[in-house]
C-alpha cells in the first residue's frame, strides 16, 4: 500500500506535453480550410448527381459502342455484297472489251491468264484459239531466227 502511494500517487496527473505557442488558436482555421474541400456525407454536392449516374453513363457508353460496331459491320457487308452483285450483272463481253481497251493486255496474255487460272477458261474470255496458236508460232519463229543468227556469228 505504501509502495503504491509512493509510485502512482507521487506522479502528477498532468502529462507534461506542450504545444507551440497559440497552436489551439490557429488549429480551427486550419481544420476549416481542409473541410472546405470535403463534402459532408449525405449532403448533396452540386455535381453529386454525376457521381450517382456514373454506372448508368458507363452502361450507356458500352451500349452505344456495340450499336456503332454492329452498324459498321452491317453497312460494310451490305456495300461488299452490292458491289459483287453489280459486277455480276456486267456481261463477259463488256469485261473483255474493258480489258482490251483500258489495259495493255493482248489476246495471248489473256489466254495465259486463263491457263494459270483454271476457272477462267478461253470460252469465258472469248479468245480464239487460232490467235493463241499464231502468237505461239511467231514466238517460236523469233526464237529460231535468233538461235540461227547466233550460231552463224559464232562459226
Amino acid at each position: 500500500m505504501e509502495e503504491k502511494e509512493m509510485n502512482m500517487n507521487g506522479v502528477p496527473k498532468e502529462h507534461g506535453f506542450t504545444t507551440p505557442s497559440r497552436y489551439f488558436d490557429q488549429l480551427p482555421t486550419r481544420i476549416m480550410e481542409r473541410t472546405a474541400y470535403a463534402s459532408p456525407v449525405g449532403v448533396t454536392a452540386p455535381w453529386s448527381w454525376v457521381k450517382k449516374l456514373r454506372p448508368a453513363f458507363a452502361a450507356a457508353t458500352m451500349a452505344l459502342v456495340f450499336v456503332i460496331a454492329f452498324l459498321a459491320t452491317y453497312t460494310f457487308s451490305t456495300i461488299s455484297s452490292s458491289s459483287d452483285t453489280s459486277l455480276a450483272s456486267v456481261s463477259d463481253t463488256e469485261i473483255e472489251q474493258y480489258l482490251l481497251h483500258q489495259s495493255d493486255l493482248d489476246a495471248a496474255e489473256l489466254a495465259e491468264f486463263a491457263a494459270v487460272s483454271p476457272p477462267h477458261r478461253l470460252e469465258f474470255i472469248e479468245v480464239r484459239r487460232e490467235d493463241v496458236n499464231l502468237d505461239a508460232a511467231m514466238e517460236l519463229l523469233e526464237d529460231k531466227n535468233v538461235t540461227e543468227s547466233l550460231l552463224r556469228d559464232e562459226y
Binding site: F17, Y23, L27, I31, R34
Partner: peptide, 22 residues
Amino acid sequence: DHDDADDLTQEVFVKVWSHLES
C-alpha cells in the same frame, strides 16, 4: 510527437465533418 498529433487531429476533424450527417 507533436507533428504527428497535429496531422492526426486535423484528420479526425475532417472525418467528423464528413460523417457528422450520419
